[in-house]
Computed example of a mutant assay.
Amino acid sequence: MYAQLWRDDLPDDPIADAPHVGIGPRIPTVSGLVQLIAAATEVEPGRVDQLPAES
């Protein structure tokens, strides 16, 4: 698994087509990916785990 994250608070970013954070390329578990996303975004892991269900 991997993740590519874009910031939504930079509307005038000249490189908006490119992800701002790339995690991977091979993270073997969902829980590992959640932990890395939480660290990169400074969001609690439990909150990161809930976000896909909310979108």
Rank of each mutant, 00 (worst) to 15 (best):
G24D: 00
V48A: 07
P11D: 11
E42D: 14
R47L: 11
T29H: 03
A38G: 07
G24T: 00
G32V: 05
R26G: 05
G22S: 14
I23R: 05
L10V: 04
W6R: 01
R26W: 01
D9C: 11
R47F: 00
E44M: 04
S31H: 12
P14Q: 10
L10C: 03
P52I: 07
G32L: 15
Q4F: 01
Q35M: 12
V48E: 05
V43R: 11
P25I: 00
V43D: 05
P52N: 14
L36C: 15
A16E: 00
A53S: 05
M1Q: 09
P25T: 01
W6K: 08
E54Y: 10
I27H: 02
S55M: 12
L5T: 13
T29Q: 01
D9N: 15
L10G: 02
I23D: 01
L5Q: 10
E44Q: 11
E44F: 13
V21S: 10
A40C: 08
D49W: 05
R47Q: 11
A53I: 05
I23N: 02
D49Y: 04
A39E: 03
P19I: 12
V34F: 02
A18K: 10
S31Y: 00
A40M: 03
Y2S: 15
D49M: 09
E44W: 04
P45V: 06
D13F: 11
D12L: 08
D9R: 08
R47E: 10
A16Q: 07
P25Y: 01
D17P: 04
E42M: 14
Y2W: 11
D49S: 09
A40K: 13
E44I: 02
G32R: 12
P45A: 13
G46K: 06
G32H: 14
M1N: 06
A39V: 00
D17G: 09
I15M: 15
P25V: 00
D17A: 13
D12G: 02
A38E: 03
D8C: 10
D8I: 06
E54H: 10
P52A: 10
V43Q: 04
P25G: 02
V43A: 09
L33N: 08
S31K: 15
L5N: 07
A18L: 13
T41K: 04
Q50D: 07
I37V: 15
V48D: 06
A38N: 07
